[in-house]
Write a protein that binds this DNA or RNA. Structure first.
Length: 569
RNA sequence: GCGCUCAUAGCUCAGCUGGAUAGAGUGCUUGACUACGAAUCAAGAGGUCGCAGGUUCGAAUCCUGCUGGGCGCACCA
């Protein structure tokens, strides 16, 4: 909750008795133009009840209202009551806040004592990690950090796709055509090759399918040979996945994949049966959802084995019992919407009141040059290749623009990887992304490197200023920051806490991504127009404070998005 | 067929859950490095907010219909 907005809202509440204070707060908006003030309250809705023209109401409120603390004046423009900040005081207050909060800037403790489970990334073992998997991973990671910033306790879970018939296939393929060393060297690629080989051979010899199902059944029954092969495939794959996660800077609290629930599903099936939810249909078991306009939710195949939904239901119950979550978030692409709607409904029908705390957060799909990415076809774009390409391109740019930079390789990784993550987090979750090699490595304009560059540049000014000069957050005069250009920067800082709250509330990291672009833009404008180092003493001090604040705020924003903020680049 | 979802500048997208003259980036045209980092900044051109109705003081935003794209619809995950 932004406290300045709250001040304006409280002042209004005295004169708008017909509305709840929270409603007034929600109605407060930021005017489109600078000269219209900083917060505005539209009076049109009051007109009918009060039998007066909105302009008149606005004028009366503006006349009667006590100008709240931190504000300079309250006037009306048309049907709006417009609040104007006391720019000097706001600048001093905001900068003091940023400097004292440091890495906690924009955070809060509203989530204290509440647990958020976040289920993200969840790649399939033995399948390549391509650009499509990036989304779940980076959005989940960003939400993790945003929630944590607001005081929530987060549990990051990588629900690996490590169970199912496909492992029977891989086992059969490995036993027929596999090579131990190849899997150790390149686990994911080798396992994928085996998977593809299996499908080729099946065309000639359909009995392989039965053999594969048989091997999966052996897995489910605890057969030692089957399980040791499966375990080995898994651990080799996870080792390789962890390299990618390390590069992305993503961590999980648990790697509890689908296999983890193998021995936990039977009681759940029993529970469903006890609650009279289970129906038999053509040998399979399902929960009928016709009353809710959905196809039935299948939880057991006619051969007795379980399904995706069974494991998700089991996992949700397990997580509730283990972590007692406040919310449990699932990050997958939107093609799984129905699946989640179905099993959420099953949880509800089981009588669990926390069914409403399960949240599916769907996101758009990644296409390659407009075409669907398919593992079996050649259209796959490996994440590793994208990251490597970005890093290489950044290295070239560094050699060109800043050849004397220390730790070039390290910085190139920060910037290259940052660019890829930032790009993924800059649009609304639900939008599809069209990946293109041509545009993927452009680092100008609204990009991660732009924000990182702005951060590095701010750092550069501070270094040159010789930091020994007093950076006392109270020891400067905000009057020097009340011009329009400086003030635009202050406002972006002032809105910061609201933006983070909003991003959290909507589970939409792009709101934060957009805001740090805006902040960087406002700052770069300031930077061009206002010399810092050569400014007169008091002014220099005030501007240095602003530079330091922006640097801090950008670092916080980038960190919350899972992106590093290098000092130099 | 039914359901979900998307449609805003040439391209990629914002638009704060109904508010003031619809904004950025990119691309194009042009200007700014002997002031703190030009991965930057400034200026210009660029719009029937898919189409048609409706709701009201007011609609890109909400409702209905249509068109077009994407996704989904019981033994895959």
């Amino acid at each position: 909750m932004n406290r300045f907005k709250e001040m304006a809202s409280n002042a209004l509440a005295q004169h708008v008795a017909e509305l709840e204070p929270t409603a007034i707060m929600d109605m407060l908006e930021t005017p489109p133009e600078n000269h219209l003030g900083d917060y505005a309250f539209p009076c049109f809705r009051l007109a009918k009840a009060r039998r007066k023209a909105p302009q008149k109401i606005a004028a009366e409120i503006a006349e009667a209202i006590v100008t709240p603390d931190m504000f300079e004046k309250v006037v009306n423009e048309g049907g709006y009551v417009n609040f104007y900040f006391d720019r000097k005081r706001l600048a001093e207050e905001i900068i003091r806040q940023v400097m004292t909060d440091g890495s906690k800037f924009g955070g809060s403790s509203i989530g204290a004592g509440k647990v958020i489970c976040i289920d993200y990334s969840a790649p399939n073992i033995a399948k390549p990690f391509h650009v499509g998997h990036l989304r779940s991973t980076v959005i989940g990671n960003a939400l993790y950090k945003i929630y944590a910033h607001l005081g929530y306790t987060c549990i990051g879970i990588n629900h690996l796709g490590d169970w199912g018939t496909q492992f029977g296939k891989v086992i059969v393929a490995y036993r027929n055509w596999g090579n131990e060393q190849a899997i150790k060297d390149q686990p994911i690629q080798s396992l994928l090759d085996l998977y593809v080989k299996f499908h080729e051979e099946t065309e000639k010899n359909p009995s392989l399918e039965d053999e594969a199902r048989n091997w999966f059944t052996r897995m489910e029954k605890g057969d030692e040979e089957a399980l040791s092969l499966w375990k080995w495939f898994s651990s080799e794959t996870i080792k390789e996945l962890e390299k990618i996660y390390a590069l992305l800077g993503v961590k999980f609290d648990y790697y509890t994949g689908e296999s983890f629930y193998n021995d936990k599903m039977e009681p759940v099936l029993q529970e469903l049966s006890d609650k009279n939810l289970l129906q038999n249909s053509q040998g399979a078991k399902l929960i009928d959802l016709e009353d809710y306009g959905m196809p039935p939710c299948l939880v057991q195949k006619s051969d007795g084995s379980t399904l995706y939904a069974t494991r998700d239901i089991t996992a949700a119950i397990y997580r509730k019992n283990t972590f007692d979550f406040y919310k449990c978030l699932y990050l997958t692409d939107y093609s799984q919407k129905l699946h989640f709607a179905q099993w959420f409904k099953v949880i509800e029908l089981m009588g669990y009141e926390w069914a409403g705390d399960l949240l599916h957060l769907p996101f758009g799909r990644v296409t390659h040059e407009g075409k669907r990415i398919q593992t079996r076809k050649g259209t796959v774009v490996l994440l590793e290749d994208v990251l490597k390409g970005a890093i290489d391109r950044v290295s070239e740019i560094i050699d060109e623009k800043n050849p004397l930079l220390e730790n070039k390789e390290e910085i190139a990784v920060m910037v290259g990887v940052g660019a890829v993550i930032f790009n993924d987090l800059s649009n609304n979750r639900i939008k599809d992304i069209s990946f293109s090699w041509d545009t993927a490595f452009s680092f100008e304009g609204e990009t991660g490197p732009y924000v990182q560059y702005t951060h590095a540049r701010a750092g550069s000014v501070l270094r040159k200023a010789a930091v020994d000069e007093s950076m006392d957050p109270a020891g400067f005069n905000g009057t020097y920051l009340s011009d329009d250009i400086s003030y635009q920067v202050i406002r972006k800082l002032e809105q910061y806490d609201d933006v983070i709250m909003d991003a959290c509330y909507k589970n939409e990291p792009s709101i934060l991504t957009r805001h740090i672009i805006d902040l960087a833009q406002a700052f770069n404008r300031f930077y061009h127009d206002h010399p810092v180092l050569t400014a007169e003493k008091e002014q220099r001090k005030a501007r240095l404070m602003l530079v330091a604040s922006v640097k801090q705020a950008l670092e916080v924003g980038l960190t919350l998005l899972g992106i590093q903020a290098p000092e130099k680049m």
